[in-house]
């Protein structure tokens, strides 16, 4: 089933959801506060010094690593099934 599709499904999904949601937040900000798109996006990526955003960024990164790992696992599983 997954054979002809992208191999890195989980990572792809992760990136898609991640960027999609960020985009969504930026768009909503744009709509409500009447700011430019660039402002909103830069607001998202600006690290507030002193705030503990490091935690969530670390978790999100962990999620990313996890998704790569599970892709790897899926591929291994599939290979062992094929052989």
């Amino acid at each position: 089933m997954l054979k002809n599709r992208m191999i890195r499904v989980v990572t792809f999904t992760f990136t898609m959801i991640f960027s999609g949601l960020l985009l969504m937040i930026a768009l909503i900000d744009m709509f409500i506060w009447q700011q430019s798109f660039y402002q909103c996006v830069s607001k998202l990526f600006a690290l507030d010094e002193g705030a503990n955003e490091g935690y969530v960024i670390a978790t999100a990164a962990a999620g990313f690593i996890y998704s790569i790992a599970s892709d790897y696992r899926i591929r291994k599983k599939k290979r062992s099934q094929q052989s």
Binding site: V9, T13, I17, G63, F64, Y66, S67
Partner: peptide, 16 residues
């Protein structure tokens, strides 16, 4: 497969 990655995103997005 998606539970952990996606929920981590939620944790991040809730702050952002």
């Amino acid at each position: 497969y998606l539970v952990f990655p996606v929920s981590m995103i939620i944790g991040y997005i809730a702050i952002q």
